[in-house]
Simulated assay, not measured.
Amino acid sequence: MSETPAEPAPSTLRAAVWLLFAEAAGMVVLTAYLVYELLTVEAVDTTSGLLLAVFAAFGALALFLIGRALGQGRAGARGPGIVLQLMLCAVGYYMIQGGLAWLGALLIALGLLLCGLMLAPASNRALGVG
């Protein structure tokens, strides 16, 4: 009984997975910063600060799980991954409006790049989509 080795994932899908993992790591750093601020700064609204830190932690977990699922070839993870990237584009837009144009443009570019990688024909073939 010899099993044929699985075909390696295309570079577009591998890049998308690694960028999702990088985003998850960034969210972990953001969560740690938010927790640090919550514990060390005299907060006006502790509940909001705690909810923001929990939201960032769930975002990191979601990005990690989506990246892992895409790495395993699960096509169902692509939709949630694209939704998160479009949300990142919205965050980037509001950062531009708020005066952080360089960071907002970077986030929009990252979100669009990841959407493109996940929707690339090679990624579609690897995931068995369309």
Rank of each mutant, 00 (worst) to 15 (best):
Y33V: 14
G130Q: 09
R125C: 02
G111W: 02
L39H: 01
G79C: 04
W18D: 13
S123L: 07
L86C: 08
A62P: 04
L30I: 00
L65Q: 13
R74V: 13
L20T: 01
E42C: 07
S11P: 02
A101W: 08
V35N: 08
A43H: 09
M1I: 13
L127Q: 08
L110Y: 11
L50Y: 05
I108L: 02
T47A: 15
G26R: 11
A90F: 09
L20P: 00
G130D: 12
A6Y: 00
G98P: 05
G79T: 15
L88F: 09
E3D: 12
L103I: 10
P5S: 14
Y36E: 03
A105K: 10
G49R: 14
P121M: 07
Q97L: 11
G130N: 11
P5E: 13
Y33H: 07
M1Y: 12
L52S: 15
L38S: 11
F58C: 13
R14Q: 15
M87Y: 06
W102L: 12
P80M: 06
V17L: 12
P121T: 06
I82P: 05
L63C: 04
A90K: 01
V41I: 13
T46G: 07
L51W: 06
V44T: 13
P8R: 06
A105D: 01
G26M: 08
Q72K: 12
T40E: 04
V35P: 00
P5A: 15
A22T: 10
V17D: 04
L84D: 03
E37D: 14
V29Y: 04
F58A: 12
L70D: 05
F55D: 12
L13Q: 08
L50N: 04
P80G: 10
V91M: 11
M118V: 01
G76R: 14
T40N: 04
L113E: 12
C89K: 03
P80Q: 09
L127C: 07
M27P: 00
V35H: 09
R14E: 14
N124P: 03
L34G: 09
A77F: 08
A90I: 13
E23P: 00
A15S: 14
A101T: 15
I96R: 06
S11I: 11
G98V: 03
A69H: 02
S2V: 13
L70C: 07
A25I: 05
Y93S: 09
L113H: 00
A57T: 13
G81V: 10
I66D: 10
P10Y: 02
I108F: 03
A9Y: 01
A122V: 08
L107M: 14
V129L: 15
A126D: 03
Y93Q: 07
E37P: 00
V44P: 00
L39G: 04
T46I: 14
G81W: 04
L19S: 05
Q85I: 00
L84P: 00
L61I: 10
A105C: 08
A43P: 06
A32I: 14
A6H: 00
V35M: 06
Q72I: 01
A90E: 09
P8D: 13
M87Q: 09
F55A: 15
T12P: 02
L86K: 09
E37F: 11
I66V: 15
F64A: 14
L38I: 03
L110R: 10
A15Y: 02
D45N: 15
G49K: 04
A60H: 05
V29A: 14
